[in-house]
């Protein structure tokens, strides 16, 4: 857990907690968001899992190419956890893609309050040399 805590505010590219996550991060650095697919039953996961939730078989990373989503729900965090309190207020949104897969990330360019159902677009953001994240744009 301690190692994952350092991922706060985006994903540290040099601090992967497993080889599977290292692969995922190398792809993210190239602005490829990877989902995973079970090598046995074909179930897909976003964000990825190394083991299938249904049959516990190994999953492999495959590129997730959908970019347009709809806002499923949101929160405007005014009072955040200690490690992110200086970033507040920030907006966290769950977006739902046409495939039904969902993703949780910040919306970073809102000029007016978010609304359930509004269109979102997935984008990538380099936070610094060694940190990267994905985000929603409206």
């Amino acid at each position: 857990m301690a190692e994952e805590k350092e991922l706060y505010l985006g994903y540290a590219t040099d601090k992967a907690v497993t080889p599977f996550m290292a692969d995922w991060l190398r792809n993210l650095e190239q602005e490829k968001l990877m989902k995973s697919k079970c090598t046995s039953c074909g179930t897909e996961y976003l964000p990825p899992r190394q083991h299938c939730q249904k049959c516990l078989s190994i999953c492999e990373l495959t590129e997730f190419t959908e970019r347009e989503a709809k806002l499923y729900s949101y929160v405007i965090v005014d009072f955040g956890p200690e490690s992110l309190s200086d970033k507040a207020p920030y907006v966290v949104a769950i977006g739902e893609f046409p495939s039904g897969l969902r993703l949780t990330a910040h919306i970073t360019n809102l000029m007016s309050p978010p609304e359930v159902g509004m269109p979102l677009k997935l984008a990538f953001e380099k936070i610094d040399d060694k940190k990267i994240s994905y985000k929603w744009l409206v």
Binding site: M1, Y11, S73, Y74, K87
Partner: peptide, 17 residues
């Protein structure tokens, strides 16, 4: 800790969602 915590989703934030 891997997929939610990095986005600063506090306990009230889950219920706000």
């Amino acid at each position: 800790m891997r997929w939610e915590y990095p986005f600063g989703i506090s306990f009230p934030a889950f219920y706000a969602l």
